[in-house]
Simulated scan of single mutants.
Amino acid sequence: MNALLDRSPGTVGAVRKKSRLKEISPVKVFSFILLLLATVLFIFPFYWIITGAFKVQTVATAIPPEWFPLKPTLQNWTDLFKNPVWRWTFNSFLIAFCEMIAVCMVSSLAGYVLAKKVFPGRKMIFTLFVAAMALPKQVILVPLFTMLADFGWVNTYWGLILPAIGWPFGVFLMKQFAQTIPGELMEAAKMDGCSEIRLFATIILPLLKPALGALAIFTFIASWNDYFSQLIMTRSTSMMTLPLGIATMQGEYTTNYGVMMAGAALASVPMIAIFLLFQKSFTQGITMGAVKG
């Protein structure tokens, strides 16, 4: 009889509830609170930009601040689109998209070769790629600008896209991920008469999809926010990118922060869209690529 009572639905539910309460430790509660605070901390600047885009100039710079626009206005967006914003957006998207495709293609090929092919100097080449990751872009900017000027590529799409194709981080990431591909799979494909090009296109490239998704996000965001290089390589207003064009709205003595925030909100939309598009493979590409070193 006692055994039957112990197995009643109420008793079983109480036991499960107690076990769940035991699993909620103070460490988990503290971790949850810490993550929640970090989330609010990272989201708040984006919230401030969005709300500031609908505030008038006097409210946007008021102290104490107005946390939510009580009298929202669209004047900031009207003033923003008085500039060639669509042209700047097109330039940013074209440059970032072309760099993303080119970097993924070149990095996947280079990473596969460095991970799976044996040839003299392979380790030295990979070491140079790793060392190049530590170099800031400003170090190579002067010789790069001189070379592009000799080619006549200053203030052109070629000069803005091609220097970013050989991104050392992309090669490093793809090489680390390609090392996780079983060599037996490649040997079996070659025994079946699969050529090298077909092996890479039909077997290796699909297996690299998670890493390619992560690399696509990194490349697009890095290119979209590459203010410094674009500032050096552009000369005309028609060749400006969106971040560069928004920066030119800042006056020498006064700045309309509402218009600036509207431009920043517009510039953040493509980055969010790219992340949401590739988010499924983002985490997998980062974690699996770190399995082997």
Rank of each mutant, 00 (worst) to 15 (best):
A110P: 05
A110F: 07
A110Q: 04
A110C: 11
G111N: 02
Y112L: 08
V113S: 09
V113T: 14
V113M: 12
L114H: 00
L114G: 06
K117R: 11
V118I: 13
F119R: 07
P120N: 07
G121E: 00
G121I: 02
M124H: 10
F126P: 01
F126C: 01
F129N: 13
F129M: 14
A131T: 10
A131H: 02
M133Y: 08
M133Q: 11
M133H: 08
M133N: 02
M133A: 08
P136T: 10
P136D: 10
Q138T: 12
V139Q: 06
I140W: 15
P143Y: 01
P143K: 01
L144P: 07
L144V: 10
F145R: 01
M147P: 07
L148Q: 12
A149E: 13
D150M: 14
F151D: 10
F151N: 05
N155V: 04
T156N: 03
Y157Q: 05
G159V: 02
L160D: 09
L160W: 05
L160G: 00
L162E: 09
L162R: 03
L162M: 14
P163H: 03
A164C: 07
A164S: 11
I165C: 02
I165M: 06
W167G: 07
P168D: 07
P168L: 08
F169V: 15
F169E: 10
L173E: 06
M174I: 06
Q176M: 13
Q176I: 00
A178S: 09
Q179A: 12
T180L: 07
I181T: 05
I181G: 03
E184Y: 08
M186C: 04
M186I: 13
M186W: 12
M186P: 00
A189G: 01
M191A: 12
D192G: 02
